[in-house]
Design a protein around this nucleic acid. Structure first.
Lengths: 359, 359
DNA sequence: CTGAAAGCGCTTACAG
DNA sequence: CTGAAAGCGCTTACAG
């Protein structure tokens, strides 16, 4: 049961009537071989269903052509998380295009084990996704293996990281809502330790200040949330519902879409009319938001771009390219949907799908 | 730039003052070594940050402890698809628990390339997810490598596959809706080529027949959809809206949640009151459904169980265990939410999250 | 253009 | 309990 792949290079060479060296050259496509010999080897490979052993090859070339992707997250959903899932989809696609395969691991304990495993597998490079402990970075650095960090936070100037410009995005959200005429804001802010949540909040309040709405006044109410989940959105909205209604707030901003959807769900279930009685806005532009009714206004995060670039930059690092930028920031834009303005045509952005193949 | 891991077994052995054989034994944890020697080797390993080379090890043991997971799907989202993402999350967790790492690939061309790659990597086993071409199965069989199929469809009696009992689930949906008093049904059915969609529809209509509602009468209207996407749900609901209203249908059943959410979104945007004017029901129990307002009633699919068991069964196969069942079916149950009955308490199922850590 | 030989970093009988 | 030797399936200089 253990023996699976039946034939090796030896059998191949034998059948083709050449040496192992020659067979190797034509299979790997490097080095010379006469057309005639090449043909013979290929035919033999075909008839034996020969599959080169990538692990043997990796051992001698010291290149696995594999990259490791670790997603650090304490709770499910991990891969099925709308934002991270999108990033991973893109990483997978971009890796394939560049000839890498990916080892994917999720690490709920934020431990070094997952990293260790990747090191033992001798991956050519590492993509570290989400918020990871500082010691992970320090650990990885000791092994001088190429790596990039996605959507994490670090003060370390050596670390190449890809993030969206959350502060600017938060500012845009403030601007947009203010432009709609709102003057009293209710905010649910995700965990302050998360870089993105704190920057989004910061960008939001700072822009409001500039627009003349002081966030230390009663015009802006900020509720901190211990998690950035849908459940927290529901729960905090429920707990603060009375305060919210009595405070005369007309606009809500949540530092991510999951929280926003939670709040939105609660409000809708309570019969609050959105956006007439309250405009609701999130951040991340997860697919769900556009599917909701009313569609959730949000600030976009270029998850696809981040995923794609993470692989591209890692690839360059692996190739030995130097002088790469340490910080790659992605601009965000406001995605206006029905949850902030009833005027918007619905479903417009979706007409590209579901072709004419139906009756 | 190519040399990364600095020290091998030789350096380790040297530093510990033992032979490579002995060092190998303590590192791999197999074979004898005196406590004193063991200690010396461990200390040396620590000081060198020694990481055993898994590829060298795999070459000699002929076991990589890696499994390959291929998701066959023509369009994004793949990993970020709510249902498949959940399955993959669970596969990752279960693999970790059993000491396997996973190579994850998505294959949009439904080609043999991804499979070839896995074979070359000498993975110990393969999990094939979603609907794959018949030739992929035939190909894989030639290499006698252990594999299981998840959520696919096959008539091949040799193939071990894990699926939910879609026919029974469709029947339960019919029963539930009928029990609520509905007698006229509007159905949007996903692609007939997909095993799950056709079985769900079949189960639904057959159960209705048994309950005295003939599906060939005008009491049941079935609209086929070319895709099982949200966009199609929106679009087909829009196209058939007039017919739907004039037909006096009081209940809608869609063969998956994405279609259901699309239809639901359209109806809500049109101002239709759900469930008062129309009860809406989907299938899959994706997380989104519970987050919607109104919460989407659905039929559950045990995505976590499927993912977990896929790994367990594959592991047994790899261990050489024989006599495993070819077909593993998962029972589905109706998840009743607000989209079919206003009575239901909202958000009840979510109170477990977002603990008391907030102010 | 082709082949013999060495070696990648481990594990595994086999002696001792 | 420990070590010397062979070998896993490839690639890569190096001769020819």
């Amino acid at each position: 049961m253990t023996s699976r792949m039946n034939h090796g290079l030896r059998e191949l060479a034998q059948l083709a009537g050449v040496s192992k060296s020659t067979a190797s050259r034509v299979i790997s496509g490097s080095g010379y071989a006469s057309p005639e010999v090449r043909e013979r080897v290929m035919r033999a490979a075909e008839s034996l269903s020969y599959k080169p052993n990538a692990v043997a090859r990796a051992m001698v070339t010291k290149r696995t052509n594999n990259i490791g992707v670790i997603v650090f997250r304490e709770k499910l959903p991990i891969v099925s998380h709308p934002l991270y899932g999108t990033i991973i989809d893109e990483i997978l696609l971009a890796s394939e295009a560049r000839g890498y395969s990916v080892f994917l691991k999720t690490d709920k304990e934020m431990s070094l084990r997952s990293t260790d495993y990747m090191l033992e597998q001798r991956v050519d490079g590492l993509i570290l996704v989400s918020r990871l402990r500082k010691n992970v970075i320090e650990y990885v650095k000791r092994f001088n293996i190429p790596y990039v960090m996605v959507n994490g936070s670090t003060e370390d100037p050596d670390v190449i990281h890809l993030v969206s410009n959350d502060e600017a995005g938060g500012g845009r959200a403030a601007e947009y809502l203010h432009g709609l005429g709102h003057r009293r804001f209710f905010v649910i802010a995700g965990p302050g330790e998360h870089r993105s949540h704190s920057l989004r909040l910061q960008g939001f309040t700072q822009r409001l200040e500039q627009l003349g709405v002081s966030s230390s006044s009663d015009k802006v109410s900020i509720v901190p949330s211990p998690e950035s989940s849908f459940a927290c959105g529901v729960r905090l909205m429920a707990e603060h519902y009375t305060a919210f209604r009595q405070g005369g707030y007309t606009a809500l901003f949540m530092t991510n879409d999951m929280l926003a959807l939670g709040a939105l769900k609660f409000l809708l279930d309570m019969g609050v009319r959105i956006p007439e009685e309250a405009a609701v806005m999130g951040y991340d532009n997860i697919e769900l938001g556009g599917m909701y009714s009313p569609g959730l206004s949000t600030v976009s995060v270029d998850a696809s771009g981040i995923g794609r670039d993470a692989v591209e930059i890692l690839d360059k690092l692996i190739q030995g390219e130097a002088g790469l930028p340490r910080l790659i920031e992605y601009e965000s834009e406001v995605i206006a949907r029905q949850s902030t303005s009833r005027q918007l045509t619905q479903g417009k952005e979706r007409t590209t799908c579901c072709g004419i193949g139906n009756r």
